[in-house]
Amino acid sequence: MPIDYTALAPGDAISDETYRLDETTVARYVAAVGDGSAPISGDGRPDLAPPMAVAALSLRGVIVDLQVPAGTLHAGQELEFLRAVHVGETLNCRATLSQNSVRGERRFIVVQVSVEDGQGGAVMRGKSTLVVPAQS
């Protein structure tokens, strides 16, 4: 069922998804962005995942559950990394709508995202501003 963007209100839960940041996921991400800085290791635990891989994961549920329409653009992003994430960790990613406004032919959607580890510890917080066609 298509999303009625006009009915979305601040405070609405957008997505609540749990993912495992496994080796395949991280390797696919690193290949895509060509990140030569990864992996970081040295403490005897699995390598650290690039923090932007966690950020990308946090937006996956937003993209899918909001059924982001074709032509949507990413206008801004804020991220706060609270602790490094090791490859293999399971992460819960939640997103909540914080703004839904129309200016001209564009609708501005602002989503707050939060990522927690398997023990409920905060890993990352963020805010994404998306510009979608206003007719959505």
Partner: peptide
């Protein structure tokens, strides 16, 4: 900044 970035980093950007 190595591991300090994924542990404490904050990023605010506009596209």
């Amino acid at each position: 900044f190595r591991a300090d970035w994924p542990s404490t980093g904050r990023l605010k950007i506009r596209f």
